[in-house]
């Protein structure tokens, strides 16, 4: 349907926000933050941790380990008042009722979808995969819903409600073409996001506090929730190699999904530190940022080795061990670099 025929969406189209290592999780939260006038990098790049929760990884692009009872906003931005909660329609006779109300109150909604049913996604009619997008308008009269999806190919505009409902309610069946993000029911899930903005200005002192808190987190042993900090990283990577050597495909399947969240977080945190290091003429901070970005880059080799070895885990166990060792060293170097940078702030 031509967009010029559509009524104006309930909310002014929000900015698209994307970085090449992030997933739809960070891009949708980034879009919501930008709509509130906040710099998504300053918020989503503030925290940095390692957390792996055994048996928790789901085959969804937007999976992220969460220690806060489903509050992904808090997990993504532990130093800001950003919160979120999952919900589903209460009444199937009008599944869009809650969406309509949120939009009428000028609140963006993040919706889970199956790419298979979305005409603007490359996987349309081809591959089932769980994904997130932002809903910013609903036109009941014309039967259109306005969505924002910053992931390439970026799309912003109206789509038929029927397409959205199929995607939103998809069973997302197992798909051989996507072993990582299929076989996870979408179930009309949505995220309500609360942004208690404006946030305080980002200062050297404030950033130093965040960095100290992050460093403390890495030093803490495993948490009741999962395997956390540097000790958790050691435990996770050794367990990964062991399970791969034993031929467990599940270990590699979850590596690709779980690792994406850790990679995205490191990339954003590194970019924030490098960005502020340059802006504040603080070379040590910029170098720390680059070191943290090195963590993100090391995740690439580990994740891709697992993905390409998915059919034969034991055959890639030695390569996984190699790249896991590199990843641990990158974390150690980056943590030491951040610690030095804190002293310069």
């Amino acid at each position: 349907m031509p967009s010029e025929l559509a009524h104006r969406p309930a909310i002014v189209a929000p900015p698209l926000w994307y970085r090449d290592p992030i997933s739809c999780l960070q891009s949708t939260f980034g879009t919501v933050l930008a709509q509130h006038g906040e710099n998504p990098l300053f918020v989503l790049g503030a925290g940095w941790e390692f957390l792996y929760i055994p048996d928790d990884v789901r085959p969804e692009e937007f999976y992220y380990p969460c220690r806060y009872d489903g509050d992904l906003g808090r997990a993504l931005a532990p130093h800001h008042a950003l919160n979120s909660s999952w919900w589903r329609p209460a009444d199937q006779r009008d599944p869009l009722r809650e969406l309509r109300r949120a939009l009428s109150e000028q609140r963006l909604v993040i919706a889970a979808v199956d790419n298979f049913h979305l005409p603007f996604r490359p996987a349309f009619g081809d591959v089932h995969a769980a994904h997130l997008l932002v809903v910013h308008g609903l036109d009941d009269e014309l039967g259109l819903i306005h969505v924002t999806d910053a992931m390439p190919p970026a799309f912003q505009g109206p789509i038929p409600v029927e397409d959205f409902l199929r995607s939103w309610g998809s069973v997302n069946p197992q798909d051989e073409q996507d072993a990582f993000f299929s076989e996870s029911r979408i179930q009309q899930r949505c995220l309500s996001v609360t942004v208690d903005a404006p946030y305080p200005d980002l200062t050297r002192e404030r950033l130093a506090g965040w960095l100290r808190a992050n460093l403390t987190g890495f030093e803490q042993p495993d948490t009741p929730v999962g395997w956390g900090g540097s000790a958790g990283l050691d435990r996770y990577t050794r367990d990964l190699v062991s399970r791969a050597r034993a031929g467990e495909t599940g270990a590699l399947q979850s590596l690709y999904t779980f690792g994406w969240g850790m990679q995205a977080q490191a990339a954003l945190h590194g970019e924030l530190l490098r960005d502020r290091g340059a802006a504040w003429n603080c070379p040590g901070l910029a170098e720390a940022g680059r070191a943290v970005e090195g963590v993100a880059h090391a995740w690439t080799a580990l994740r891709m080795t697992g993905a390409h070895g998915f059919g034969a885990p034991a055959e890639v166990a030695d390569d996984l061990r190699w790249h896991a060792g590199v990843l641990r060293r990158r974390y150690a170097e980056a943590l030491a670099s951040v610690e030095r940078a804190v002293g310069e702030l």
Partner: peptide
């Protein structure tokens, strides 16, 4: 070219 940015 790389499948995700990488350095090694």
């Amino acid at each position: 070219a790389a499948e995700r940015r990488t350095e090694d």
